[in-house]
């Protein structure tokens, strides 16, 4: 293996990790507050479709991005209303949200854009100076803006969740909503905020595909990425850093298997394609003794004044 190969694989890994990062960080914030949203994939699809549609019609990528984030937030709001206000079973609500987003984005695509089209998405933006550093520069600093933002999001999310009063509230609401409630924290409001924020990030995840990385939309563009993003939250043990590691691991293994195929390795492609999924499980299994601080109230409905 030469440096060029390693550079290629790592920079692929970073690009592939981008949508997972947005979606999984968003999902982490929601889950830490105690709400499981299985509908990430549907929200991503809506974000991808709306961002692409707006960018195509207005010619403005920024408007597209804002619209994608906006529809994601709206879907987050729907999830919050159903799971927090109506206290519905979270797992099934998420599946409903997924089916709704998948169907609606396919339907709207069919009646508005109709034919597969491409646009010029966010261009690659080499960071001055940093991108000149050999190896590192090429791996980390020659991507489009949404890739940088995704990675910048990790420390920000970590800081907000762990070092701010708001983050403390979020964690309290996820660990022990009754206690938080008795201390005067508005459980519903916190969860509304986190789930809506999570939806917004999922919307951006979709937009990062349709107007930055792939620059097109077609039905089921995400191909199940949202579910992988949910899985990565568990991989990361509800820690933003863990989610980052998981996204990078999954995506880099994927980049490796693509590279092996391109190089013409004689292993059947199906086995290579399995690699990211198997490695993710194995790595997590190998860390069986890690300490995981699961939000105790995750996937449980909170009724004020009960118990």
């Amino acid at each position: 293996m030469t440096w060029a190969v390693i550079v290629g694989i790592l920079s692929s890994g970073i690009r592939l990790a981008t949508p997972y990062l947005y979606a999984a960080v968003g999902e982490t914030i929601g889950q830490v507050s105690g709400v499981l949203n299985l509908g990430v994939d549907g929200v991503m699809l809506m974000g991808a479709y709306v961002a692409f549609f707006v960018a195509l019609r207005t010619g403005s990528l920024s408007l597209g991005l804002i619209a994608g984030a906006g529809i994601g937030a709206m879907f987050g709001l729907i999830m919050a209303f159903i799971s927090v206000t109506l206290k519905a079973e979270q797992g099934i609500s998420g599946i409903g949200l997924y089916l709704f987003g998948l169907g609606l984005s396919t339907f709207l695509f069919g009646v508005t854009i109709k034919n597969v089209q491409t646009i010029d998405g966010f261009p690659d933006l080499a960071i001055p100076a940093l991108s000149r550093i050999p190896v590192i520069g090429e791996i980390f600093f020659q991507h489009n803006i949404l890739v940088y933002v995704a990675f910048a999001l990790v420390p920000i999310a970590w800081f907000v969740l762990n070092k701010t009063p708001f983050g403390l509230k979020v964690r309290a609401v996820g660990q022990n909503p009754e206690a938080a409630d008795s201390l005067g924290v508005n459980v519903s409001r916190v969860r509304y905020l986190t789930v809506t924020l999570g939806g917004m990030l999922s919307g951006i995840a979709g937009a990062s595909l349709s107007i930055a990385l792939l620059n097109t939309f077609q039905q089921n563009l995400t191909n199940g990425m949202g579910f992988i993003a949910v899985a990565l939250v568990y991989f990361g043990g509800w820690r933003v850093s863990g989610v980052l590691l998981g996204s990078l691991l999954f995506s880099t293994v994927n980049a490796v298997q693509l590279w092996l195929q391109v190089k013409g390795v004689t292993i059947p492609s199906d086995f290579l394609l399995m690699m990211p999924y198997i490695v993710t499980i194995l790595v997590l299994a190998a860390m069986a003794n890690r300490r995981v601080n699961a939000p105790a109230a995750l996937n449980k409905r909170f009724e004020r004044g009960e118990s």
Binding site: S12, R15, L16, L213, L214, T216, N220, N254, Q261
Partner: peptide, 9 residues
């Protein structure tokens, strides 16, 4: 249908 994997390939 995996547009993303096709792109990275």
């Amino acid at each position: 249908s995996d547009v993303s994997l096709a792109a990275e390939t």
